[in-house]
Amino acid sequence: MNPPAALDIKGLTKRYGDGTLALDDLDLEVPDGSFFGLLGPNGAGKTTLIGAVCNLVRPTSGEIRVFGNPGGGMMARRMIGIAEQEPNLDKFLTVYETLLYHGGYYGMGREEAGERAEQMIDAFDLRNKRDVEAPKLSGGMRRRLLLARALLHRPNLVILDEPTAGVDLELRHELWSYIRVLHEQGTTILLTTHYLEEAEALCDEIALISGGKIVARDTAAGLKVSHGAETLEQVYLKTVAGGRIALAEEAARA
């Protein structure tokens, strides 16, 4: 029997209270141990999909399994680490406390969580900000803290929603190398990004999402071949952004 996929999503639909259909009968399988990229335009449903997997959004219908465990359940939640798109830090907590409390939420004892927090502080170069509250951190430091928090409880599946948005080149490379090491150690990574070259450099598989559906899925090389394109950007424009660009051209001419 094959090991269960890290993420197995079947027929996932999410309609928000205001009627917006964000996910439309979506199927997606993320293999165990993969470095998986989820690409798609603004509003495609990436963050909604991640929210549904992480118990942050209530799915309207469909099934989610995380390493075979029912999505939203305790086992599934324990196995996932998430760094959300928007930094969401408690403004009254220091870097150390943010990490310590997170460990507590995941059932670590105070001592274990404290030790692990110190490890993450060193790993993410936050040592001299250890006792500083989140609002006094720079944007890049907040990103690092967000990632440190996501990884603190040693998740098997790490979900990163645009971790490198608005991050300088140096930090971007720093984050990449950290995530790469993590992946080499066997952690499954699900990454969303708007930087196509980033996805191409990092991910061994890519899914393109548009209008709440997966419209293509393959390796970067496979996608280029099947769409007769030379770059991933061309594939992207052909599959998910074509309509929008035609509209923009029309609007510009009008």
Binding site: N55, M75, R77, R78, E84, E86, N88, L89, D90, Y105
Partner: peptide, 17 residues
């Protein structure tokens, strides 16, 4: 505050009933 600044998400996604 936790809802507004969304750090409630860190609690909702954690394995706590």
């Amino acid at each position: 505050q936790a809802r507004n600044d969304r750090y409630l998400d860190d609690i909702l996604s954690a394995p706590m009933p």
